[in-house]
Design a protein around this nucleic acid. Structure first.
Length: 565
RNA sequence: GAUCGCGUAGCUCAGUCGGUAGAGCAUCCGCCUUUUAAGCGGUUGGUCCUGGGUUCGAUUCCCAGCGCGAUCACCA
């Protein structure tokens, strides 16, 4: 907000003790150790101000370059030239220190957080870290002024500093900035995590992500990779002629999926509102309005459990294409994910991740050498075409009888202690499918499961020849469901019947709270929606797969945590 | 919501078959102009998650609670 403010506004009362200085810390019957560590840092803060005349909280600094960029400007011959000149000057000691030839080494100005600090007496080494990596700064007593050197000796792990000087290297070959200026721009007052082990406690990592980000650099890399991934998807979709739109997050009726919504309230209108569980019904309204290709990448909110692949708010891409169907969306999805995986393999290499496992690591001779990316123990082969299997085939392979044999299905469900008594036949089949058939899918290969039963696909158009089958697929990768696609149902009468049927199964309380018929959506269908293909992709899960992150919490910067009292 | 596991110094972790605890790093003091998890000498630091029970005595055993993790359930 005020980051653009270049004016150097002096802090109002630099020497006044800030309010919550807790002068009672010492009297608090034996200083608690955490407070002792903080007190030591506050004492340094005081000394910086009162004895060195430094203001430990800085202002705008221009011309800072990333540490990786500064490192890249190291030049061995310039360094050698400088060393030779220095040696010559030393040999001719006593002679005039004239010959003040230009230092051939590049000058850099860098900023970063101190992550290592070694004080050798008259020489201090400090490692800085920023988003691009780490770089050493060497501060020699003879190269900086008195307060700068006093600051160098007093640096704490976590302080944010700006250093300036020629880029060279040490006798051990470490590229570093030989600082002739050193400034403190933010004094860190909290004890940092261990410098070598980083921050390991998952609870602290998520609750204090800002610490996690600098203590565990791979967290920043994952965030950068995710950002690159989403940018790529947008470019790719734009290139295919899709228009990115934004539709309501606050909805009077939570439609488009059967998840439990978060409920809120609008005061001025005096109405309940729901955080959306899906943008589907709004994006389809845009098809009705005449936008032929739309997509949205945004958050959905589902009031459900939390686990490694579920966060209550998560990012979804939905896309709709007029006059397409689930097979045009299959082509789109396969192309997008294949290209995306290739892009991410390059990005990972660019950011210094180990090269990905070769395709030969599995199923020799079978694959076409498309991008292969590691995901835990798996090497996921994203080469085209992805695998395709029908729901019915997978079911029969897993269970040994056709899915239409409901009697056997009920028996099998009972044998597996699946609560099936209250379920309709097709839902019994689906329970079996999810528990027995899904695990048969090759986790190392993206796999489209085709021809889902119509009965469990309320928004999908039934197949023309076989109405019990829906024109729908679900994509599975790495053991996770990545998303479905439909040939969208655009017959308003069938849609009404399916909605009504869906509502009938719910108990009265649920229905009155958040399940009601979206009459306006049905109105839109009566106005007329072109036939269309629709797609939903779980962006977080794709990010997990392409950044080799085992938990959704590794790809969501601030996952939901229970607040701590 | 269920089951299992975990919770010890700022961080990473040992340990106590029940007798109120240790290490490394960090902190603080001293030494060192080329360190690479720097080194050397010294120093400080604990509600052993919380509450209750058993016991002469509980960080340890038991019960309950809180938080986190894993698995499951929920999530068409």
């Amino acid at each position: 907000m005020d980051a653009q403010q270049p004016t150097n506004i002096p802090s109002p009362t630099p020497h006044a003790a800030p309010g919550p200085e807790r002068p009672d810390a010492a009297s608090d019957e034996g200083a608690v150790p955490h407070d002792a560590l903080v007190a030591a840092r506050r004492e340094k803060l005081r000394r910086h101000r009162e004895e060195l005349g430094l203001e430990p909280y800085g202002v705008r600094v221009d011309g800072i370059e990333p540490l990786a960029g500064a490192r890249a400007r190291f030049d061995e011959s310039a360094h050698a030239q400088h060393e030779a000149a220095a040696a010559a000057a030393k040999a001719g000691a006593g002679a005039a220190p004239a010959a003040q030839t230009e230092d051939p080494r590049a000058r850099v100005r860098v900023a970063g957080r101190v992550v290592q600090h070694r004080d050798l007496g008259k020489l201090v080494f400090a490692w800085l870290r920023d988003h691009s990596g780490d770089l050493q700064v060497s501060i020699s007593r003879v190269a900086v002024d008195e307060s700068g050197f006093a600051l160098a000796k007093a640096l704490d792990y976590g302080d944010i500093v700006v250093a300036e000087g020629p880029i060279g290297r040490t006798q051990r070959g470490e590229v570093c900035v030989w600082a002739d200026r050193l400034e403190l721009h933010s004094k860190s007052l909290e004890p940092p995590p261990a410098k070598w082990h980083g921050l390991a406690d998952p609870e602290l990592r998520y609750r204090h992500r800002y610490v996690d980000l600098f203590a565990n650099p791979e967290v920043i890399r994952v965030a950068q990779l995710r950002s690159a991934m989403v940018s790529f998807i947008r470019r790719w979709m734009d290139g295919r002629g899709f228009l990115e739109v934004e539709t309501p997050m606050l909805q009077p009726i939570a439609g488009g999926a059967a998840a439990r919504p978060f409920v809120t309230h609008h005061n001025a209108l005096g109405i309940p509102l729901f955080m959306r569980v899906s943008p589907e019904l709004y994006l389809k309204r845009l098809l009705v309005g005449g936008l032929p290709r739309v997509y949205e990448i945004n958050r959905n909110f589902r009031n459900e459990g939390i686990d490694r692949s579920h966060n209550p708010e998560f990012t979804m891409m939905e896309a709709y294409e007029a006059f397409g169907d689930c097979f045009s969306m299959m082509e789109l999805t396969e192309s997008l994910l294949h290209d995306l995986a290739g892009f991410m393999a390059e990005e990972r290499a660019r950011q210094g991740f180990a090269p990905t496992a070769p395709a030969a690591a599995h199923a020799p001779g079978v694959r076409r050498g498309g991008p292969v990316l590691p995901f835990g123990e798996l090497a996921i082969d994203w080469s085209r075409p992805f695998e395709r299997v029908t729901y019915a085939d997978l079911f029969e392979r897993a269970l040994g009888f056709p899915m239409t044999d409901f009697a056997k299905a009920r028996a099998a469900a009972a044998a597996r202690r699946i609560e099936a008594a209250k379920l309709d036949d097709w839902f019994v089949v689906n329970e079996l499918f999810e528990s027995v058939a899904e695990p048969l899918i090759d986790r190392a290969r993206p796999t489209f499961v085709l021809e889902f039963p119509s009965a469990i696909s309320p928004l999908t158009r039934p197949n023309r020849r076989r109405p019990e089958i829906a024109d729908r697929w679900d994509l599975f990768v790495g053991g996770m469901e990545i998303g479905p696609a439909y040939s969208e149902l655009n017959d308003p009468d069938i849609q009404r019947a399916k909605f009504t049927e869906q509502l009938r199964g719910k108990d009265a309380e649920e229905e009155s709270t958040y399940r009601s018929l979206d009459e306006d959506f049905l109105h839109a269908l009566r106005v007329g929606m072109p036939p269309a293909g629709g797609l939903g992709l779980g962006i977080d899960r794709i990010a997990m797969l392409l950044t080799d992150s085992p938990s959704i919490r590794d790809v969501v910067l601030f996952p939901l945590m229970r607040p701590r009292g």
